[in-house]
C-alpha cells in the first residue's frame, strides 16, 4: 500500500514537471491575446500630442482606422522612448492587432517596434523613420529629400535671376542634428545648390527646429555676416524665427527666407510675400495610408515596400494662390 502511495506521489511530481515544461515551451509562442469575436484593434502610438502637427497625424490615423471598421486607441509617448516602450507592451498584452507608430527616436524606437513585430503584430511607421528596415512592416515617410531638391531649385532660380552669377551668400539653419529628417532635408537642398559655385554658405547652425532659437541664431550670425542674401531653414518654425530676426535687423526685404513643412503661418507669410517658399508635407496622407495598409495587412497583403515616400509639394510665390488661405493666428 505504501509502495503504491509512493508510486502515485512520484507520478504526480513528474506530471507537474511535464505540465511546467509544456507551459514554458508554450510561453514563447503565446505573446498576445486577441478577441476572435470583436473587431480587430489598431493602436496609434504617437511621439507627442503637444504639437498640433502630430495631433493631426494621430487623430487622422485613428479616424481612418475607425472608418475601416477597427477599434482604435491613441497612445501619447510624450517624446519619451521609455513611455513608448510601455505603450508597446500594453498594446501587445491588450491584444492590439496592428500598431500605427510615429516613433519618438529613430534609434531608440527600434527595440520597441521589434517587440511588436516579433509578437506577430504589424507596425506601420508614419512620418518619422526608424533606422532599421526590419523594425517595421512599412514606413510611410515624407519625401524630405525630394521636397528640398524642389526648394533648392527654386532657391537657385530666384536668387540667380536677381543677381545673375554674382556671389550669393546664404545661411542654413538646421533642425535637431540627431534627427534623420534634418539631414535628408539638408542633403536634398545641397544636392542642387552645391552645383552652383557662386552660392556660398557662410554659416550653418542648428536651432533644434525651434522658432526662438532660430531667431537668436540668425541674430548672432548677422553680426558676423551682415551681407547675406538668403536663409534656408529646416522647418517653418525656424523660418518664422529667422524672418523675425531679419525684421529686427531691418533686412526683411533684402534677404529671402525659405522654410519646410507647410505650416499655416508660413503659408500665410508666403501669401503676404514675407517668406519665399516652403515644402508642404501631408500628415493626413501619411496617416490615412498607414491605416489603409493595416487594413490591407489584415486582408492578407504582405508584400509592403519597406519605405514609401510621400510627395512634398513646393509652395512658392507663383503657386500659393492654389492653396486656400487659413485663418491667421
Amino acid at each position: 500500500m505504501t509502495k503504491k502511495l509512493n508510486y502515485m506521489n512520484n507520478l504526480l511530481t513528474y506530471s507537474r514537471l511535464f505540465v511546467l515544461l509544456l507551459l514554458l515551451l508554450l510561453a514563447g509562442s503565446c505573446t498576445s491575446k486577441t478577441d476572435a469575436n470583436g473587431p480587430k484593434k489598431v493602436a496609434v502610438i504617437v511621439s507627442t500630442l503637444n504639437n498640433p502637427w502630430f495631433v493631426v497625424l494621430a487623430e487622422t490615423a485613428a479616424a481612418e482606422a475607425k472608418a475601416l471598421g477597427y477599434e482604435t486607441k491613441i497612445f501619447d509617448s510624450q517624446n519619451n522612448t521609455a513611455l513608448e516602450s510601455d505603450h508597446f507592451e500594453n498594446a501587445i498584452v491588450s491584444g492590439f492587432n496592428a500598431i500605427l507608430l510615429n516613433p519618438t527616436d529613430s534609434d531608440g524606437s527600434i527595440v520597441n517596434a521589434r517587440k511588436a513585430i516579433e509578437a506577430g503584430i504589424p507596425v506601420f511607421c508614419m512620418d518619422r523613420e526608424v533606422n532599421s528596415p526590419r523594425a517595421a512592416t512599412c514606413q510611410i515617410l515624407s519625401d524630405n529629400y525630394s521636397g528640398c531638391v524642389a526648394i533648392g531649385k527654386y532657391f537657385v532660380q530666384t536668387l540667380r535671376a536677381k543677381a545673375s552669377n554674382t556671389p550669393i551668400n546664404y545661411v542654413e539653419i538646421l533642425g535637431l542634428v540627431g534627427d534623420n529628417n534634418t539631414w535628408n532635408r539638408s542633403k536634398g537642398f545641397h544636392s542642387v545648390v552645391d552645383q552652383y559655385r557662386n552660392f556660398k554658405m557662410v554659416a550653418q547652425q542648428s536651432a533644434d527646429f525651434d522658432r526662438n532659437k532660430a531667431m537668436e541664431v540668425l541674430e548672432s550670425i548677422l553680426q558676423a555676416h551682415p551681407d547675406i542674401n538668403a536663409v534656408f531653414c529646416g522647418n517653418d518654425a525656424m523660418a518664422m524665427g529667422a524672418y523675425q530676426a531679419l525684421v529686427a535687423a531691418g533686412k526683411a526685404n533684402d534677404v529671402g527666407v525659405f522654410g519646410f513643412d507647410g505650416a499655416d503661418d508660413v503659408m500665410n507669410s508666403i501669401r503676404d510675400g514675407k517668406i519665399k517658399a516652403t515644402g508642404l508635407q501631408s500628415p493626413q496622407t501619411m496617416a490615412k495610408t498607414a491605416a489603409q495598409f493595416a487594413d490591407a495587412y489584415f486582408k492578407g497583403k504582405r508584400d509592403f515596400a519597406k519605405k514609401i515616400p510621400v510627395a512634398v509639394e513646393l509652395i512658392d510665390q507663383g503657386n500659393i494662390k492654389d492653396y486656400p488661405a487659413t485663418k491667421k493666428s
Binding site: S146, G152, Q157, N184, K187, D303, A305, K306, K307, P309
Partner: peptide, 23 residues
Amino acid sequence: YIFGNAVRDASGLIQITEFDNTM
C-alpha cells in the same frame, strides 16, 4: 535645371519594393 525624380519615375519601370532605403 535637371533635378528631381521625373526621369527615375516616369517610365514606371522601377519598383519601390526593390529598395529598403529611400536614400
